[in-house]
Nucleic acid binder design. Structure first.
Lengths: 207, 207
DNA sequence: ATAAAGTATTACGTAACGTGAGAGTCAATA
DNA sequence: TATTGACTCTCACGTTACGTAATACTTTAT
């Protein structure tokens, strides 16, 4: 069998076969007069073994040792690899927990900002809400609405990092969480809903 | 602060700082007349950020974007990274399950072999060696020799996967490694050498 | 002043291929 | 038979995040 045939059969690239040949991991049974690689059935079996160990995350160097050395302790190799994988997983878990905490903190900060009675921000909030209340009868994707929303977005941005996605989610909360809704609607009937829509439009448009 | 000082402070190598400078991830505040890197407090803060994202598994390229572009959507980047990590973990889990299954199967096979009486295992070896000793005067490619060798090959295969190549290599070792040679030749003068030849013939013939 | 310690700049090595580039080969068609 | 399209071959650079010399200059300590 020629390279392409073998490659397609097991689902790898021709380059990979070239590479395996190059590093002596899997040399074709013979090479034709014109320099083409010819793989045998036996080569295919070896390849299966190689791919099996590859699936288990073994580096090619180890695989080569395992394949070539009949005395190599496969069992022990498997156990060593198993431990390595467990270690890698716990590292990954740590990273995942860290990143989740970070995301949560960011969300909490945004929520806290919105809810906080900090005088400093309260006025800005009020100004923006009032400004928005004035245009709430316009469509959410109107020039005026979006301009007002942008002011809101830029203001929040000064407080901390967050994404347009988070901004959009914040809008959702305005409607879903009655504590927000009530607070905001004091500035105008249906303002929360209006803000949610405009924030969504703004976020989507600036993605 | 100079490189070593910074490096020790955050627990990275000098080379790493050189590298970060080289790829423009963290350039020192200034460079002295003699070409020494001088890091500022601000540099240290940036470095902390860099290391934080590195802990989360971000590639340096992304970190550079995040650090250099204040408008870069950090939140979204975190979410994307989070998804990537989850994917990597599920891949790892799959690998771990596979390797555990493999180990279990091997253990079961060994247990099955032992269950039939640990003596039987040793006896099989002895029987095969004695059997081979009887035909060692025949040519290595004779019917009888190859039949005996095949029994040997099939028996080994029951205990673990043996490629024909590995089988052949094992034969080489019988001659090259005196520990084997000695042990085997107890069953007959020159048996190791005979086995090596017969195993090579068997392996080549069944390729 | 001299030695020890620190720093700087190349530059190769690593893992496992991906991706051309340039050239030869094989089979089928005009 | 000549051409063409489909394959194959061998370079050889690019990728990631530094580790590890090798060589040379600077600063610090004695």
């Amino acid at each position: 069998m020629k390279v392409r045939e073998v490659a397609d059969l097991v689902g790898i690239s021709v380059r990979t076969l070239h590479y395996y040949d190059e590093i002596g991991l899997l040399k074709p049974e013979k090479i034709t007069a014109s320099g083409y690689r010819e793989y045998s059935e036996k080569n295919l079996e070896t390849l299966q073994q190689i791919l099996f160990f590859k699936e288990l995350g073994f580096p090619l160097k180890r695989i080569k040792e395992i394949i070539n050395n009949p005395l190599f302790d496969r069992q022990k190799a498997l156990e060593v690899q198993h431990k390595m994988l467990l270690n890698r997983r716990s590292q990954l878990d740590k990273m995942i927990r860290t990143i989740e905490k970070t995301i949560d903190k960011a969300n909490a900060r945004i929520a806290a900002l919105s809810k906080s009675g900090q005088e400093e921000f309260a006025e800005k909030f009020k100004a923006i809400y009032e400004n928005l209340a004035k245009v709430r009868h316009l469509p959410a994707d109107s020039e005026e609405a979006l301009a007002a929303i942008e002011e809101w977005y830029l203001f929040l941005n000064k407080m901390g990092d967050y994404s347009l996605e988070a901004f959009k989610n914040l809008g959702e909360m305005y409607v879903d969480d009655p504590r927000f809704t009530e607070n905001i609607d004091k500035f105008g009937e249906g303002l929360a809903k209006f803000m949610r829509d405009a924030m969504a439009v703004y976020a989507d448009r600036n993605k």
